[in-house]
């Protein structure tokens, strides 16, 4: 098979994947209705995978979960690493919107502990900070009250910035 043939096939397959992700119309010749049905089914499958791997995040959103997940999925294709990685990106997306629950923030913090020996997250509902650290038998964590209420907003922004830095690490 020639390089050109392979290149053409690669482009055709990529165009189909983009259509199924809702990023583009189906390529010429495809039945748009059938591809649309497949795209909708794929979104449900993707959402279900995140619901199973990040149950606390889905649960805390309640009825808003399907809509928020659809918005997220349109903006970001599936990362390598399967449903667990998809769920982590979704949790980060929610945190940027200020919609991630404390339980979700703790799960996200623990999921990111691969990046270093210690991690910190702010829990706005409880007004506490949680500190997680690695030790010989796994990851342990404790929380402290967040006492700086008068400067609440500025501190919250700073913590959010620190969390972003941990994400990037």
């Amino acid at each position: 098979m020639s390089v050109e043939q392979r290149q053409q096939l690669a482009e055709q397959q990529a165009a189909l994947v983009r259509a199924l992700a809702g990023e583009a119309n189906p390529p010429d010749g495809f039945d748009a209705g059938n591809v649309g049905t497949a795209a909708a089914a794929l979104l449900v499958k993707r959402r279900r995978g995140v619901e199973k791997t990040w149950p606390g995040v889905a649960e805390s959103l309640g009825d808003r979960f399907p809509k928020l997940f659809a918005d997220y999925a349109r903006s970001r294709s599936i990362p390598p690493g399967g449903h667990g990685a998809d769920g982590r990106h979704f949790a980060q997306y929610l945190r940027r919107l200020g919609l991630l629950s404390d339980a979700g923030r703790i799960q996200l913090l623990l999921a990111q502990m691969g990046g270093g020996p210690i991690g910190v997250a702010y829990l706005p509902e409880a007004r506490r900070i949680v500190i997680a650290y690695k030790c010989f038998d796994g990851v342990r964590r404790f929380t402290l009250p967040w006492i700086f209420r008068s400067r609440f907003a500025r501190r919250q922004r700073r913590i959010a910035g620190a969390e972003e830095a941990i994400d990037g690490a």
């Binding site: 043939q5 096939l9 397959q13 794929l42 993707r46 599936i78």
Partner: peptide, 24 residues
């Protein structure tokens, strides 16, 4: 196939039943 152009499809997708699809 399950990925193309750097994107994961998240599902098993049919291969085009052409000579090129067959040979690849």
């Amino acid at each position: 196939f399950v990925r193309a152009g750097g994107m994961e499809a998240g599902h098993l997708l049919p291969v085009p039943r052409t000579r090129a699809g067959l040979e690849a």
